[in-house]
Design a protein around this nucleic acid. Structure first.
Lengths: 219, 219
DNA sequence: ACCTGAACACCGTTCAAGT
DNA sequence: ACCTGAACACCGTTCAAGT
């Protein structure tokens, strides 16, 4: 293969793109420095010329992915903005489930993702007129909720296992008297329909914030 | 060392205890079948006589830990019960941060933990008098929120990194115009004090559920 | 039934060497 | 500056063998 003299075969971008491809295709386990080397047609050790180690590489992938998150523009009603923000975050999780699973358990990765992404959420919540303290804590609640929710989505998409099916099987495997409430509630016909619980979660949170805003005392 | 004839050196309990010890001490990475063998004074392969593989072993550890979660008794006001439930879950995360990080990304492990733990939460929420559909979705919201929150705690305790410090550093590393809102809000003096945002998150959720219960329409 | 040990196919990373 | 290849210290798990 002819390669221009003095022209590097590799580049940060080529490596990052290949790494994300491997992760998306076959999960984080598929991202070994050796396999990445093979994917790039290069000795594994060549990568170390661009990234000091595997962790740094992974962090760069995270940064890349979140930099491309379509955060909503700072216009319109604040609830709508928060909703769009949550949806955008969710889209990232659906597009790169394996990566999201990695992120949440890595504080450095979380920091990288959060610094970029929070600006938009904070900006939206600030428009609610709630005091700074409440805004920050509401943001914490929403971020934690979306993280937990996104985790379920990612975990579902990631492993072949269907989470709902796995839970159902686990409940069935347990003594009836330890699972009576779950059996009753989950078999309720109203529960099955329209399982878009993500939006509903945000609805509850918004209702709570409205109550706080209108000065409702809570016992 | 004298060992009673016909008496096994190993047992599921001995193995599980040692595994959890290793995980708590040094993280999930420290749990290799080989190190576990050394810890138990036994050939690594002996463990395979009790568990088919590492995954099954890990699942058993998860089951053990959550079986010991102090779920609140089914008495008292439902909000108090939910709060106690969330606190108990949180205690597990604080006691075994490395393990919790593993769980969330493993749907099988989540199912095992959830089947045991949800019974109590569902039971408490049912007392709110809300319809089955709402109870299940409220439970989803709370579980996702607590999972996200617990993750932050675990992640903090797990790695040496302080998450707040990491985020602060990441924000400082970014251009000012991309972090103006975050800088303003996080430097507000009211935000620093009393950073028990976990309880506050539940407060918002409860306020939201109250609003739903009292038939408040939400736009 | 319970435990061992060699072997296989993997890892991330260091280090010295090539162009 | 960029890439290579051998080497080191690890993995999980299979398989045949011991008691």
């Amino acid at each position: 293969v002819a390669r221009p003299i003095g022209q590097a075969v590799l580049s940060r971008e080529r490596i990052l793109a290949a790494a994300l491809r491997l992760i998306d295709q076959s999960g984080l386990d598929a991202l070994s420095m050796r396999k990445l080397g093979t994917e790039l047609g290069v000795d594994p050790m060549s990568i170390y010329h661009y990234f000091p180690n595997k962790d740094a590489l992974l962090l760069a992938v995270v940064q890349d992915v979140f930099a491309s998150m379509r955060v909503p523009p700072p216009t319109g009603p604040w609830k709508q903005r928060v909703r769009k923000w949550a949806d955008a975050y969710r889209d990232v999780a659906v597009a790169h489930p394996h990566l999201v699973l990695q992120i949440v358990s890595n504080p450095s990765a979380v920091a990288v993702a959060a610094a970029h992404v929070n600006e938009s959420l904070y900006g939206a919540l600030e428009k609610s007129g709630l005091p700074a303290k409440t805004v920050v804590r509401a943001a914490d609640l929403i971020v934690d909720y979306v993280n937990g929710s996104v985790l379920a989505v990612a975990s579902d998409t990631d492993h072949d296992v269907d989470a709902t099916a796995a839970l159902r099987a686990e409940i069935d495997a347990r003594p009836r008297d330890q699972t009576t409430v779950q059996r009753r509630l989950l078999s309720d016909p109203s529960v099955a329909e329209n399982r878009d619980s993500f939006r509903f979660g945000l609805d509850i949170i918004f209702a709570g914030l409205d109550a706080l805003a209108s000065g409702k005392k809570q016992r």
